[in-house]
Design a protein around this nucleic acid. Sequence first.
DNA 1: GTCAATAAACTATTGTCATTAGTTTATAAA
DNA 2: TTTATAAACTAATGACAATAGTTTATTGAC
Lengths: 191, 191
Amino acid sequence: MPKRPGVNQDRLVEASLELIQEQGEQGLTFVALAKKLGIKPPSLYNHVRSIDDLKYILRLRGLRLLESDLKNAVIGRSESAALHSLCHAYRHFAQTQPALYRMTLASTEHDDADLQAAGRASLEVLLAVLSGYGLEGERALHAIRCLRSALHGFVSLEIAGGFAMPLDLDDSFELLIRQQEQGLRELPPRG
Amino acid sequence: MPKRPGVNQDRLVEASLELIQEQGEQGLTFVALAKKLGIKPPSLYNHVRSIDDLKYILRLRGLRLLESDLKNAVIGRSESAALHSLCHAYRHFAQTQPALYRMTLASTEHDDADLQAAGRASLEVLLAVLSGYGLEGERALHAIRCLRSALHGFVSLEIAGGFAMPLDLDDSFELLIRQQEQGLRELPPRG
DNA sequence: GTCAATAAACTATTGTCATTAGTTTATAAA
DNA sequence: TTTATAAACTAATGACAATAGTTTATTGAC
């Protein structure tokens, strides 16, 4: 029973993604969004509860897109091939949608169940890859934290312009992957 | 020739740090800041050019504090001891001043020379530690990028609440350090 | 086809910001 | 004591999110 089939939440999210793609997260305002959709700002409240609600929706969307990309990257691959493909997919996601990536990883008090579930889904993909290295249980979870840290750290520094030295970024990233793989093959002893 | 020795830029920065410590970056407004200082918002423009200018100043302050902490952490230490101490200092900084850490690493179009210099200073500390591992030149720079990525990734995920699994974070961080050290001792071959 | 229900748009308004312009005040030096 | 000026002030503007209340268009029942 849709009454006026103009704007719906999907179109709203789509337009929001375009906005942050063009102007970054700070370009995402109800004024700009309404203009892009051809309606007045207050009408947006028929589709989202608030601008924070909209950002939450985008965050969730980002997490799910990322998980989808990661899953596609490892399909039909295992061990080293899977790891490399996954790492490149992760970086590619952040490079092509930097604003969405930033929002996805933004901290929030809104620790929602859906949000956690979406995050856990990506974790499952990593776990599957690590099982190919014979890692399971707590050891695997600790290892995943290290891998996630390296990936997130690299791509967030990269899209923030944090790597200033005139040195090939692809080379650095390849080294990072090799180091991670080495860390998985021979988990260093305590000490 | 100070005319009215009330608020100056140092007190302003100090109050700003308290504000973001208490309420996060979004709690940093000229209204709140002026109230904390006992003046009216427009008076703040006698000490900073804009709120973005203030955030730039805080970013710079954060970078310099971080560098100072890192430097102190490695003084009188070398190789493994230096690396461990440095990593823990890095994490400690982010844990105790999460909002400032977040701002420090925030992306900016304001790619200022002072900002770059401050960032490079921390890099020098890392370089000094790596030289103890026999790493120099481009190899050292690539290795630094990996180390920075791991550190930044871990602490930013940690302060964002990104590690949801019920698993000791200190243990994960220790593993991360050991993996990084292993990566430095035996730089993995290409392929 | 008419009409009631309602989703989705609208107008008008409020409150919170950052920011600017112009004015007053207090201090330091002459 | 006077003067220059840094640093406060008042008043106002414009962007934004958000709310209240109103209108409009479409759907579905009759």
